[in-house]
Amino acid sequence: MKPEALWSLAALAAGLIFLSPVLYTIWMSFLTVDSYYAGTPVLTLDNYRAALGEFDFLRYLLNSLLVSGVVTLGGLALAVMAAFAFARFTFPGGDFLFAAVVATLMIPSHITLIPNYLTLAKVGLLDSYAGLILPAISNGFAAFFLRQYIRGIPRALDEAAYMDGARPLQVLWRVIVPLARPAILSMGLYIFITEWNNYIWPLVAISDSDLYTLQIGLAKLYRENPGEDVINWPLVMAASTITILPILIGFLAVERHLVRGITMGAVK
């Protein structure tokens, strides 16, 4: 074997060892609870059946998809429009307002926890999808990095479009958005994953189990300890796998975009 291939195998092995908790989780999720405790593996899909059915994880999965999806689309729309304005227009107050957007990157989210809870309580949006979605929609990070990206697109293209007869929104939609697609895609993934994994806000805002996201559902399932006298670990692991899997699949499909989105701007 060539040394290159050998190194690849070694790296693969090291990576698998590092990821072994996750891999073992997936393996465990296919074991019957009795066989897990007995130590003699018997494979089954019952854990998934139970998790998705009896324990409502199908519903949580759909909730998570809905909330993360809407937050991603809404967040991108707001961020792209603002990024375009900050990248391409000079206007009174523009620098100040941009600074206000960027400053949100440094503002710790915990300070908004109680007030946002109170705001949503006041307008009756606790225990609603809107209550999960609205506070997560604004994303200063996405606005900041999309602005940096748009500034890299030659301004002459905008001007050509204006000369061709476009209005600002047409320039944004027909020229800037197609050309910024890699950045928008990366930011979309970033927003989606962040929202998918969001825990503290749904924990605060939701008490109706119909609206649980996967994160809340999983934490509850683990805590409430389904099982007679011992924890039903295989069931918990099936639920964990359901929680991880969409991101895992997405990760394998688009790792490059994801890495670019996450490193973009961190390094000049």
């Binding site: 030659p154 002459a156 293209l157 001007e159 050509a160 204006y162 000369m163 007869g165 476009a166 050309l179």
Partner: peptide, 17 residues
């Protein structure tokens, strides 16, 4: 610009890639 009855050719062409 769109209402001025003009067309423009830019230095770097500014073609939509």
């Amino acid at each position: 610009p769109r209402d001025r009855d003009i067309a423009m050719i830019f230095q770097n062409y500014a073609l939509y890639p």
